[in-house]
Structure formats: C-alpha cells, structure tokens
C-alpha cells in the first residue's frame, strides 16, 4: 500500500515535464525512504535520476517496495488536470495495476481523482557510485539554461572548461563560434545569483547541447544548478529540491571532435 501526499502538485508536474522528453516509460520505485526514478534515454547517452524523499510528503506511507511502471506521456496528461497549488495524493495497492492520483484544491472543496494504468517495464536498477568530482560548479539555473540555449543556436556540442579563473562554455559551429566565461561571484544579498567553483584539477569536456538543453527544462525546480565534472567521466547536472530530494541528470561526454 502506497499513500503519498504532496502539498504542491506542481512539484511533480515540473519534474515530469523536465524528463518526459528524455524518457517515455519508466518505473517509479517506491519504498519507505521515498519515491525514486532512474532511467536512461533511448540512446543510453543520458541518465535521469530522481529522488523524492519521504520527508517531502506528509504523510508518506509505503509498506513494501512497489514499482509503478508509468508512461510519462499519460502522466503528463493527468497532471495537466491539476492546478498549481493543488494538493496531490498518490495511491497504489501492493501489487497494483493502476496508480491513483487525487487532486485537492486547498481553497475550494473540489476533489478530482484519476487512475493511470500501469505497465510492466523491464528495467534494471543501475548502481551509480558516489564520485568525487574534479570540479563542481554552482550557478543560477536560469543562467545555465541561457548558456545552453544561446550556444545551441550555433552548434551541436559545447565544451566546458573549468580552471582556477572560472568556467568557460565554448562552442564551434558552421556560422562561427561562441564562448561564455563565468567567474566565481558571491552576492550576499542575492545568494541566488552566486557562482561558486570548487576545483581540484582543471577539466575540459565536450557534451551534446541537445541533451543539455533538455536538462534545462528542470530550471524551474530550483534556483541553482550544480554541474559536476571530471575528465572522461559523465557530467552530473543536479537540481536540488526541498528536503534532500533531487533531480539529477548524467550525460556521457562526447569523444573527439567531429571529423
């Protein structure tokens, strides 16, 4: 039996919106610590990992481990029916064939209820090791989104170079090239605009902008985004959610330049 009440239906809405273009079907793994999701895109180049800890819900009850195999397209359709400030309750049996979503309006007495049919998705759990990265960059999520969007107009890939001076996003395209340089920056009044770089070793990696632009759809979830890089290791893009929850994207770097 799963019952999870989320004060803000909007949170789930944004999460699903952010990942539905990468992943079509996936399992929501529910256990007593919360609801987790992990999936790769069709080409196995990117990986999405979401964790909504039980503390994010009130109340949260999950008696045994349940995997809810959901088509994200269907989930989007249903979530569209929820108002932003609705209270969302997720319910499922122990061996469910549907997941039940209840939207309660906090101001009126309107209650709407939807069932989504579940599917069996053959998905293994992929163990992601905790890794110490050579460079960790925190920057405003909107800034990162802007960088990706601007550079994607020029090229298909971006190289991210991080050194003591700062971080440089650089791209070469048919029409020309572009680069954006960010220096560490602290603003006590507006911590949201901080750019922090924690570096143990300079790194330089190239990534597909198409995927990064896709990740940036999560910008609405958090003010700041954290980029973690090590040479020749997948990039981690993390959006921190409240109560220790997170939405993480991993992206395998590109090898070599196009011929």
């Amino acid at each position: 039996m799963l019952e999870a009440r989320l004060e803000q239906a909007n949170l789930l809405k944004k999460v699903v919106d952010a990942i539905k273009d990468l992943v079509q079907d996936c399992n929501f793994d529910c256990n007593d610590s919360g609801i987790a999701l992990q999936a790769m895109d069709n080409s196995h180049v990117a990986l999405v990992s979401m964790m909504l800890r039980s503390e994010a819900f009130s109340p949260f009850r999950c008696d045994r481990n349940i995997a809810l195999g959901i088509n994200l397209g269907s989930l989007t359709k249903v979530l569209r029916a929820a108002a932003t400030d609705d209270i969302l309750t997720l319910k499922a049996e122990d061996a469910p064939d549907v997941v039940n979503l209840v939207f309660e309006s906090p101001s009126t007495d309107r209650i709407s209820e939807y069932d989504i049919k579940l599917m069996d998705i053959d998905q293994e759990h992929l163990g992601i090791p905790e890794t110490e990265y050579a460079a960790t960059i925190s920057l405003p999520a909107s800034e990162f989104q802007r960088i990706c969007r601007d550079l994607s107009a020029l090229s298909e890939s971006v190289s991210i170079e991080c050194s003591k001076e700062g971080v440089k996003f650089n791209c070469q395209g048919d029409i020309g090239s572009g680069s954006i340089h960010l220096r560490p920056h602290t603003n006590v009044d507006k911590p949201d605009t901080n750019v922090e770089i924690d570096l143990t070793e300079p790194v330089s990696l190239t990534f597909s902008l198409k995927y990064l632009v896709n990740f940036c759809k999560a910008s609405g979830l958090s003010d700041q985004v954290k980029l973690c890089l090590s040479n020749e290791v997948p990039l981690l893009v993390e959006y921190t959610l409240q109560t220790n929850s997170y939405l993480r994207f991993y992206l395998a770097p590109k090898i070599g330049d196009e011929e």
Partner: peptide, 24 residues
C-alpha cells in the same frame, strides 16, 4: 581506449589518496 576512460573513478582517485571508502 576512448570509451574506457569514461570511468568516474580515474581522476579523483589519482589526485586524492584519502578517497572515501565509497569511492570505486
């Protein structure tokens, strides 16, 4: 060789010897 470099572990480890146990 290119692909193989895609390991999380290479760099951090080479750099820091006091790597936490969790690390590969």
């Amino acid at each position: 060789p290119q692909q193989s470099k895609l390991s999380f572990s290479t760099k951090p480890k080479a750099n820091k010897t006091e790597v936490p146990a969790e690390q590969p």
